[in-house]
């Protein structure tokens, strides 16, 4: 009896925490179903007196919304793929190749992780201008293909793979490429999925970069696109909320499907410093 009570109260507590985290989403959905003027009347009125689907109709008829959505998908997928390639290769080099100054170089890279990217935005704008990247989606994709955090994670993981495995492969005549493709990559699928998920979410929600670097309305990404939903002096919050509800769908679905691999992936890297 006591254990049942314990279990029920434990589950109740967890449920409460879960709900607490979700409350803001409830507000979001609720606001998306209200008329723009009603958004500020009473947020606690979760279920609007009159369900107002007009915001969603506007979205579906919007000239650009789904174009932005598609742009976001494309940018995110390209980023994920490029990052996957460059990061795994660099991690492999740091884990398995011996060369002078390796440790120093790695430390140098790690220090980049600590630098807030937003601080160099003006310099980057000028630089991208020189490189012809401004107002192209490459200005978002290319910088994001490099990520120290995942080089670090993957290096940890690669170092954890017993050398015997790869040395046996070398004796068998496999080159480094063979080891990389046949041993390292297949073994690290869950880690790669973790990386994919994080990369996906970060790039998907990136606001500052597309906001500054992309100026054409039809090249814009969907997060910044929401900013276009405005009235003469101020934002159309109701429409933005409706737009946000649809934006959240994809990362949410991804997380739901990949959660299992995701935890496995982090377990495998055994983040231990």
């Amino acid at each position: 009896m006591g254990s049942l009570l314990k279990k029920v109260s434990f589950n109740g507590f967890m449920l409460a925490i879960g709900l607490l985290m979700i409350i803001p989403f409830v507000f979001m959905i609720s606001a998306s179903l209200k008329a723009p003027a009603d958004v500020f009347i009473n947020p606690l009125n979760i279920i609007p007196d009159e369900i107002f689907t007009f915001n969603y109709e506007t979205l579906f008829n919007h000239e650009y919304y789904f174009k932005w959505y598609w742009n976001s998908i494309r940018v995110v997928v390209l980023t994920v793929i490029f990052r996957g390639v460059f990061v795994t290769m660099a991690a492999y080099a740091f884990a398995r190749l011996e060369f002078k100054g390796k440790e120093l170089l790695f430390l140098l890279l790690l220090s980049a992780m600590m630098i807030p990217q937003d601080t160099t935005i003006v310099a980057r704008f000028l630089l991208y201008g020189v490189m012809g990247l401004n107002n192209t989606q490459w200005a978002i994709i290319l910088p994001a293909t490099f990520d120290v955090f995942f080089i670090f994670l993957l290096r940890q993981f690669f170092m954890g793979i017993p050398k015997d495995l790869s040395e046996a492969a070398i004796i068998d005549g496999a080159s480094h490429f063979g080891i990389y493709f046949r041993i390292m990559i297949p073994l690290s699928v869950p880690v790669l999925i973790t990386m994919t998920l994080f990369t996906f979410i970060w790039t998907w929600n990136d606001f500052v970069n597309p906001f500054i670097f992309i100026s054409d309305i039809e090249k814009q990404l969907v997060t910044v696109g929401l900013e276009y939903f405005q009235l003469e002096a101020g934002q159309n919050y109701a429409l933005q909320m409706a737009g946000s509800c649809l934006i959240v769908l994809i990362p949410m679905a991804l997380f739901a499907f990949l959660q299992k691999y995701f935890i496995e992936g982090i377990t495998m890297t055994g983040v231990k410093g």
């Binding site: 985290m21 979700i22 803001p24 929600n205 606001f207 929401l226 909320m241 946000s244 959240v248 949410m252």
Partner: peptide, 9 residues
């Protein structure tokens, strides 16, 4: 979940 939501929201 909060991680997947954009900052504006």
């Amino acid at each position: 979940l909060p991680m997947v939501i954009s900052t504006v929201v």
